[in-house]
Amino acid sequence: MTTTTRPSGDTPEQMSSRLRSFLLRQEVILLIISLLAVMFLAFGSDRFLTANNLLNQGRLLTEIGLVALSMTFIIITGGIDLSVGSILGLCAIVLGVMWDPKGAFAFPLEVAVLICLLVGIVAGFVNGLIIVRLGVPPLITTLATLALYRGLAEGISQARSVRGYPEEFYVLGQGEFLGVPTQLWVLLIFCIITAVVLSRTVFGRATYAIGNNELGARFSGLPVGRYKILIYTFSGFMAALAAWIFVSRVSTTRSDMGSGLELDAIAAVVLGGTSIFGGSGSIIGTIIGFILIQLLKNGLALSGVTTDGTIVVIGTVLILAILVNNFIQRRSGNG
């Protein structure tokens, strides 16, 4: 993938080939598709293209968005994290149980939130530790912890939900700041941080290097293991943050929260042009990816398609996105 701009003085042929490779970039294609989708959906329902609806959709996409940002790093290193949905569920339950005034702990809300975030960090760290130090493939590790973390959530909660949080707790998930849903600011901040880290820092370049050639990265002296543990830990933290926002948005905690979240997050990342084989991808692509998915969900819902119908569409989009991506990469590889 060419990312550096060369000095001017290209021949017209080079210019046209550069233009073509720019237009064939996944992000650009995705942006065009998104615009088309918005136009199409706007024609389908006059409730779609309103500031109110779009801001409300922003509320709904924050959790997926946060997790998709950290998932981008993981997939670029050639890994995968299937446990994010379960981490979200576990953290949500921990938040509820720690705070629950009628429960055994009855901590202040701030402490409960802190413990919730801590549990997410530990959960992600454990994933990273198993993958890096014990050499178990990410797919199997996170499949096992998907069961483990969800099981812990179910075991701790015993299918009871915790509700009735104080009013100020809902500011994050239901409130507004400067006319924009509070959690969108959080998402925005993390979008900027992750985009800068991935494209402008040594750590970001190392992430690509690990995905392209892990052994090579190791031999060039990169602390591959430490970086990977850090990335999986970050993923756990983002899932915990998403759990906090989720609980604040829906006003309750249940152990089945976030199940299937991994599908949406992976779909967003892959849709955004990050190669599932690792080594290439971008945060911008992921951002467009999760926005497109949310628009799709919303548009379908407004035109009367059920949630279950929407899951079908997302599954199809995921497979198609990879097909198209493979096709483009093969073409550009040949050309």
């Binding site: 096992a144 912890t145 069961a147 099981g151 179910e154 909660s157």
Partner: peptide, 15 residues
């Protein structure tokens, strides 16, 4: 409700 945790631990141990 603890069954799934047992499953997860079992996979990890075997692997």
């Amino acid at each position: 409700y603890w069954f799934r945790s047992v499953v997860g631990v079992l996979i990890l141990i075997t692997v």
